[in-house]
Write a protein that binds this DNA or RNA. Structure first.
Length: 618
DNA sequence: GCAAGGTC
C-alpha cells in the first residue's frame, strides 16, 4: 500500500519521517521551496510512505467580484452574500505538490496538529487530494508529541478526521470575515465622509472581533488613569536599629502596621497617641519556617511574550519573530505552543549537556549534570498535545542583538526549569505597642535556580534575633502620611495577560492583534524610561466611547461576544449545535448591532469630534 | 482598502 502523509508544517514532516523510517529516508524537492517530500518503507504496516506537508491553511476566503470593491454594495449585504473559497496564491505550489503525490497513493494520512485548526487544515488537504484521486482512503493520525512510540502508534492506528471540528473553524472563518468586512466598511466610509484627515490617508478604520476588545482594554485603562483622584492616607511607622552581633554596625528593622494605612486622620492620630503612650514594644510572637521561591514553569508562547516584553523590553510581536527565526535556524524548539509541561519521557540531559560549553551559564549546566543537580521541571496546567514547551535545541555562542538576548532568556529559563526552587528561611516577628500590632518578615537565601535565571529577584536581609516576650524601645515611631498612586497605562505585558485571560486571540495571534491596533493608529506607544506604555489615540477613544454611548447590551469592545463565538465553536465540536445554526444565530445578532451602530454612528462621530481632531495626538 | 487563524 502507498501512503501519503501530510503534516501541518515542514518541520513536523521531517520529524515524522526521521522517526518512522529510523533515519533511512530519501528526500525529494517539491514545487514549493520550503516543502520537501520524504520517501521510505514502513514494513510495520507493509507500506511505502511519502511524507510531505502544507504550510498552515491552504485556502483563502473572500467575497465574489460583485462585492469586493468598497463602493459596489451596501456593506450590510456582506452578512449574506456568498463567500468564495479558493486556494490562496501562496499555496498554489503546495496544492500542486499534493495533487501530484495523491495520484500515486492509496491512502492519505493527515498528520496536522491535534487541535481545531489542525482538523480544518486536514479537511482542506483531504479536499485537494480527493480531487486528484477520487477513491483515495482518507485517515488521520493522532499524536500529542513528537515521540517515537506515539508516532509509530499513530501511524499504525489511524482514526477518522473530525469533521465537526473542521466545521466549527469554517463557521468562525466565515463569521469573522462577514462581521469584519461589514463593520470596517461602514466605519471607514462614514468617518471618511466626516473627517478630511481620514479621507486623505485612505487608511481603513477597521473593526474586528479580536482587535476591538483589545483596543477596549487599552481605552478602559486610559479612563481609569484619567479619572483617578489621589487620596491621602496615614499610617504608623515603627522601626528598631540594633546590631546583629557585637562587632557589626546597627541595622534597621522596619515593622509594618497590621492595619496597613487608614484614610481617616483623626482615627489614625488617636491610635498613634495610644502607641506613644506606651514607650515599650513587646515581641509577642516569633515564627521561623523554611520558605521557597518556586522556579518558573516551562515556557509557553504567551509566557514568552509576557515575561519577554517585561524583562527584555521587546514588543510581543518582535519576540515571536525573533523566536521564529531562531527556530528556523535550528536553535530553538517550535515557538508556538500552549504547553507548559514536558512529557515525562522528555530527554533533558542531552539538551542540558549541549549548554555546558557556554561561558555564561555553562558552569550551571555542568552542575545540573552532577548528582543532586537536576530536578524535573514543574508541571503546568496547559497542554496543546502538539508541541512541547519552548526550549533550546542546540548551543549557539555567536548570536548578536535581540537574537542573542531572546536565546539567552529562553536558555536560562529552560535551565532554571531543570534546577531547584530557591530556598529561604522566613522569620516573622510580631510586635505589640500601645495596643497596636506590627510585624517584620524577612528571608535568607539559598539561591539554586536564581543563579541562572537572572531575571527573578528575591531579596532577603539578615534580621536581628528577637525573642518572644522581649521588650524594646522603638528607635522610630512616627505618624506618616502617604498618597494612593495612580494606576499606570497598560504595558504590552499587561495587555497580553488580559487578552490571554479573556480568550481574545490565540498564542500565535495575540501579538498580531496588538500590532494591528497600533498600525491602525488606535493606540500609540509611549516610552517612559525603558518601559513602553500603550495609550489610546483620539480615534481609538472616539470609537470605543462612541460605541459605549450607543449602549449595546453586549459591547462590541468587550470580550463577551468573542467568548460566545468560542462557546458556539465548542458546541459545534461536541455536536450539540450545527454549523448552520451557529452561523445563523451569530449573523442575526451582529446584523441587529450593525443596524443600531449605523443608525447611531453620530455618537461615535460626536465623541471623536469632542477631541477636536480625529487624527492621533502626539 | 475589510477579519482571524494557520504558517515561511
Amino acid at each position: 500500500m502507498k501512503v501519503l502523509c501530510v503534516a501541518e508544517k515542514p518541520s513536523i514532516a521531517r520529524s515524522i519521517s526521521a522517526i518512522l523510517s529510523g533515519g533511512q529516508f530519501t528526500t525529494r524537492p517539491s514545487a514549493n521551496k520550503y516543502i520537501k517530500n520524504f520517501d521510505f518503507n514502513y514494513p510495520q504496516t507493509n507500506s511505502i510512505y511519502t511524507v510531505t506537508s502544507v504550510s498552515g491553511h491552504l485556502t483563502a476566503h473572500d467575497f465574489g467580484d460583485a462585492y469586493r470593491t468598497w463602493n459596489s454594495c451596501d456593506p450590510f449585504v456582506l452578512f449574506d452574500v456568498p463567500i468564495e473559497t479558493k486556494i490562496s496564491t501562496e499555496s498554489k505550489t503546495i496544492e500542486k505538490n499534493l495533487r501530484n503525490e495523491a495520484r500515486g497513493a492509496d491512502m492519505l494520512m493527515i498528520w496536522t496538529d491535534c487541535d481545531r485548526e489542525g482538523e480544518h487544515i486536514g479537511s482542506e488537504i483531504a479536499t485537494v487530494c480527493q480531487k486528484a484521486k477520487h477513491n483515495i482512503i482518507v485517515k488521520r493520525a493522532r499524536f500529542s508529541a513528537i515521540i517515537a512510540q506515539q508516532i509509530h502508534n499513530a501511524a499504525q492506528h489511524p482514526v477518522e478526521l473530525d469533521r465537526a471540528q473542521a466545521n466549527a473553524v469554517e463557521a468562525r472563518i466565515l463569521l469573522d470575515l462577514r462581521i469584519g468586512a461589514a463593520f470596517t466598511r461602514m466605519q471607514t466610509l462614514t468617518l471618511q465622509g466626516r473627517f478630511a484627515q481620514l479621507n486623505e490617508k485612505r487608511d481603513p478604520v477597521s473593526y474586528g472581533p479580536c482587535q476591538f476588545p483589545t483596543l477596549g482594554f487599552v481605552v478602559s485603562r486610559y479612563n481609569q488613569v484619567k479619572s483617578f483622584v489621589p487620596e491621602t492616607f496615614w499610617y504608623i511607622f515603627l522601626s528598631l536599629s540594633r546590631s546583629t552581633s557585637s562587632s557589626s554596625a546597627p541595622e534597621e528593622t522596619q515593622f509594618t502596621w497590621r492595619r496597613g494605612h487608614l484614610f481617616d486622620f483623626d482615627v489614625t492620630l488617636a491610635l498613634y497617641q495610644h502607641v506613644l503612650g506606651d514607650p515599650l514594644a513587646r515581641v509577642v510572637k516569633v515564627v521561623q519556617k523554611p520558605t521557597k521561591k518556586w522556579k518558573p514553569l516551562p515556557l509557553t508562547t504567551v509566557e514568552l511574550q509576557k515575561s519577554g516584553s517585561r524583562l527584555l523590553k521587546l514588543a510581543p510581536k518582535k519576540l515571536l519573530d525573533v523566536a521564529e527565526k531562531l527556530y528556523q535556524k535550528g536553535f530553538l524548539s517550535y515557538p508556538r505552543t500552549e504547553t507548559d509541561q514536558f512529557d515525562p519521557q522528555f530527554d533533558h540531559m542531552s539538551l542540558i549537556r549541549k549548554q555546558k560549553i557556554d561561558p555564561n551559564w555553562g558552569a550551571f549546566a555542568t552542575a545540573l549534570e552532577q548528582a543532586n543537580g537536576f530536578v524535573g521541571p514543574r508541571t503546568g496546567k496547559n497542554n496543546d498535545k502538539a508541541h512541547p514547551p519552548i526550549h533550546p535545541t542546540a548551543h549557539i555562542g555567536n548570536l548578536e542583538g535581540d537574537e542573542r538576548r531572546v536565546y539567552e532568556f529562553i536558555t536560562r529559563r529552560y535551565l532554571a526549569c531543570c534546577s531547584k526552587d530557591a530556598e529561604g528561611w522566613e522569620k516573622n516577628v510580631e510586635v505589640e505597642c500601645g495596643g497596636e500590632r506590627f510585624s517584620a518578615s524577612l528571608t535568607i537565601l539559598a539561591r539554586n535556580y536564581l543563579d541562572v535565571y537572572i531575571y527573578d529577584k528575591w531579596y532577603g536581609k539578615v534580621i536581628p534575633d528577637f525573642e518572644e516576650g522581649e521588650e524594646f524601645t522603638p528607635t522610630v515611631c512616627e505618624l506618616k502620611e502617604g498618597e494612593t498612586s495612580s494606576p499606570s497605562y497598560l504595558t504590552e505585558a499587561d495587555l497580553v495577560t488580559l487578552m490571554d485571560k479573556n480568550g481574545i486571540g490565540t498564542d500565535a495571534t495575540i501579538a498580531q492583534h496588538i500590532q494591528t491596533i497600533v498600525d491602525r493608529e488606535y493606540v500609540l506607544e509611549r516610552m517612559e524610561g525603558a518601559t513602553k506604555y500603550l495609550v489610546p489615540s483620539t480615534l481609538g477613544i472616539g470609537l470605543i466611547e462612541g460605541y459605549n454611548q450607543i449602549g449595546f447590551e453586549k459591547s462590541l469592545s468587550k470580550p463577551q461576544l468573542r467568548r460566545e463565538t468560542e462557546r458556539s465553536m465548542v458546541q459545534v465540536c461536541e455536536g450539540t449545535k450545527t454549523k448552520q445554526d451557529m452561523l445563523a444565530q451569530s449573523i442575526e445578532q451582529y446584523k441587529d448591532m450593525y443596524i443600531r451602530a449605523r443608525g447611531e454612528f453620530n455618537k461615535v462621530i460626536t465623541v471623536s469630534s469632542a477631541f477636536g481632531r480625529i487624527d492621533v495626538m502626539r
